[in-house]
């Protein structure tokens, strides 16, 4: 079954955030379906909806994001989309 996940990135705005994050996603063959970003009081917030081709890759992905988080001072989280559907839709 096709699973989708929500990737959120929060941190101080700087050059190259989207490039670095999408680079990791591309490496794991994850297609970005939707992307939106905003800057709130210097804080960069980006939310992406991605196709999770292989769900068991989520561990590797989290691991790969760790170095990006450290390098750019970001907080990146990835959550399966179902949880948002459950919480916000009846």
């Amino acid at each position: 079954m096709q699973k989708r996940a929500v990737v959120t990135v929060v941190g101080k705005d700087q050059v190259g955030i989207i490039a670095r994050v999408t680079n990791v996603l591309a490496k794991y063959q994850m297609n970005v379906q939707d992307i939106s970003q905003t800057i709130l009081q210097d804080f960069f917030t980006m939310i992406m909806l991605v196709d999770l081709a292989e769900q068991d890759k989520i561990d590797d992905l989290l691991h790969a994001f760790e170095s990006v988080e450290k390098e750019l001072g970001l907080t990146i989280s990835i959550q399966l989309e179902d949880v948002f559907q459950a919480m916000h839709r009846v």
């Binding site: 929500v6 905003t38 949880v83 948002f84 919480m87 839709r89």
Partner: peptide
Amino acid sequence: MPIAFTEIQETIRMVQM
């Protein structure tokens, strides 16, 4: 109906803060 930006933010706020 797609999930809105604010709804995603709400869930994340609940977990992280």
